[in-house]
Amino acid sequence: MKPSIAIKMVLGIIIAVILFHLCILLKVIPYEITWGGRLTNDTEMYIFETFSIGLNLILGLAVLIKGKLIKPFLSIKVVNVVLWIFLVLFVLNTVGNLFAKTNFEKAFSILTLALSVFLWMILKKKTS
């Protein structure tokens, strides 16, 4: 798979994930099925969901810069470090999702594994 396709796949997944987290914030989707079933109240949900949306926006910006889809405002070295951090986080999250309390969240291990693979493909891409 070409890195450009991996970039588009990651961006598509990020958009879907942000929409998912917005649905949780708006209480369209119950928060009990997320975060390993460990959230106990609305305050925790608002904090965790806002944090998650922020992280996804950071990842999206890094991928957009790496894919040369926006004008870089960070060096490529910083972007690569950010992407490596996310790669490690997604690998760890894949393992964590396998041990989640809900089957719904266990299914997300497929998504986090896919993101790990796509990020690996993007990071292998040579930049000029």
Rank of each mutant, 00 (worst) to 15 (best):
L92H: 05
T94P: 08
G67W: 05
K66H: 14
V81F: 02
V78Y: 05
K68H: 15
N93L: 07
L64E: 05
K68G: 12
N80T: 10
L89H: 07
F86T: 06
G67Y: 08
L92N: 04
L87Q: 02
L64F: 03
K66M: 07
I65Y: 11
S75F: 14
L69H: 08
L92Y: 05
V82Q: 03
K71G: 04
I76E: 09
V81E: 00
L69W: 11
L92F: 09
K77T: 01
K68F: 15
K66G: 09
V81C: 01
I85F: 14
G96C: 03
L69D: 04
K77R: 10
N80W: 02
L64Q: 09
I76R: 14
L74P: 05
P72S: 11
L89K: 07
N97M: 11
V81Q: 01
N97S: 10
L64S: 08
L83R: 00
F86D: 08
F73G: 09
L87T: 01
I85E: 00
L74T: 15
L69R: 13
F90Y: 12
L64I: 11
F73V: 14
P72N: 14
K71T: 07
V63P: 01
K71F: 08
N93A: 09
K77M: 01
L87E: 01
N80H: 10
K66V: 01
V63I: 14
K71N: 13
K77A: 02
K77N: 04
L69A: 12
F73P: 11
S75T: 15
K66E: 10
V79A: 02
L64T: 11
F86Q: 09
L92T: 02
V82E: 00
V78L: 13
I85S: 01
G96S: 05
V79W: 00
F86N: 05
L87N: 04
L83T: 04
I76H: 11
